[in-house]
């Protein structure tokens, strides 16, 4: 069973087939950026991007991603340069404890890939399932707008 993880083809060993994608990433591949928060698809701390879609890895079976392309927070920066969303998160000092933020960033990246200049309603729809107990929501919203503008400027 193969899949593409952050641009590289990887094998899913048989004994990991029935684990969650979250456990596969964290405990088999050692990519611990995605976090466990609820294990039930409710909090979004475990969000990664599967074939372009923000996906709750805690409720995704490892075997179900065979042939898919998975991107985790570790695969976002390219050659030392932060992804515009990561940079926006830093510029606006979004994180408090930081535990939810890998999930937040991945949801935001998926949103901006699909809708380069999202409306407030688009942000609501894409981000409402990512919980943050520290209450960084205002900054998350602002950082998404900021990243959208940066990307638009960068693209011209």
């Amino acid at each position: 069973m193969d899949f593409v993880l952050n641009g590289e083809i990887q094998d899913i060993p048989d004994e990991w087939a029935e684990e969650s994608l979250l456990n596969l990433l964290r405990d088999h591949f050692g990519l611990v950026g995605a976090k466990y928060g609820c294990g039930a698809g409710i909090c979004g701390a475990c969000t990664v991007i599967v074939d372009g879609v923000a996906t709750r890895s805690c409720i995704t079976l490892a075997e179900s991603i065979e042939g898919a392309e998975v991107r985790s927070i570790e695969g976002l920066a390219t050659g030392g340069a932060l992804h515009p969303v990561q940079q926006a998160w830093l510029d606006l000092a979004v994180p408090q404890c930081g535990y939810c933020q890998a999930g937040q960033i991945m949801s935001a990246v998926a949103l901006l890939n699909e809708i380069p200049s999202p409306s407030e309603a688009d942000i609501d729809a894409a981000m409402d399932g990512n919980l943050c107990r520290c209450g960084t929501y205002g900054r998350i919203r602002a950082a998404i707008r900021h990243a959208a503008i940066q990307r638009a400027v960068g693209a011209t």
């Binding site: 570790e74 976002l76 932060l82 998160w89 830093l90 994180p95 933020q101």
Partner: peptide
């Protein structure tokens, strides 16, 4: 810039 900020946004 937040101490550990870069670490947080890169996982």
């Amino acid at each position: 810039e937040l101490a550990q900020g870069r670490d947080i946004v890169t996982g």
